[in-house]
Simulated assay, not measured.
Amino acid sequence: MSFKLIASQCTSSSACEPLCPNVAMSVKAGNFAIEPKKCSECIVYFDEPQCVAVCPVENTSVIDTSVPRYQAPA
């Protein structure tokens, strides 16, 4: 699964964008968004997803259950 941003809660602080190891964050229509195909949930890179760790608004970056779980390369 990848993460997604709840647009109505996003403050566009941009704290998350530079920390994303997969460059999965972008601005669309004035709001940040996560590209599901690029999101690895920060597996292999960090102990926790960086978008969750640095977001100033709790529960803005959440698991997107509509996307299959990321599989780290063997």
Rank of each mutant, 00 (worst) to 15 (best):
I63D: 02
A53S: 13
P21M: 11
S61V: 15
P73Y: 13
L5N: 04
A53M: 12
T60E: 04
S14H: 14
P73C: 13
P21T: 13
V67L: 02
L19F: 02
I34W: 01
K28F: 07
Q71I: 13
T60Q: 08
S13M: 06
A24F: 00
L5R: 06
C51P: 04
V52R: 04
C10R: 12
C55T: 07
N59R: 10
S12R: 12
G30P: 09
E48Q: 05
V57P: 06
I43Y: 07
V23H: 07
S12Y: 12
T60W: 06
G30K: 07
A74C: 14
P49L: 03
C42V: 08
V62H: 03
A72P: 02
N59I: 03
V67D: 01
P73L: 12
Y45M: 05
V52C: 00
A15T: 02
A15K: 01
C20W: 05
A74N: 14
Y45D: 11
K37S: 08
V67N: 01
E41T: 14
P68C: 05
P36N: 03
S2Y: 01
I34S: 01
V23E: 07
M1V: 13
I63A: 08
C39H: 01
D64P: 06
Y70P: 08
M1L: 08
E35Y: 09
D64M: 13
E35F: 05
T11P: 08
N59Y: 11
T60F: 12
V67R: 04
N31T: 12
T60C: 10
E17S: 08
S13Y: 06
C55I: 06
V44Q: 07
T11E: 10
L5F: 14
M25K: 03
Q9K: 15
Q9N: 14
N22V: 00
E48P: 01
E35R: 01
C16K: 05
C39Y: 11
P18K: 03
E48D: 08
S40M: 03
A53T: 15
K37V: 03
A15W: 05
M25E: 05
C55N: 04
P68W: 12
K28H: 09
K28L: 12
S2N: 09
E58V: 13
E48W: 10
V52F: 03
R69Q: 13
L5P: 05
A53I: 05
S40K: 00
A7F: 10
M25P: 00
A72H: 03
K28V: 15
D47F: 11
A74D: 15
Q50D: 05
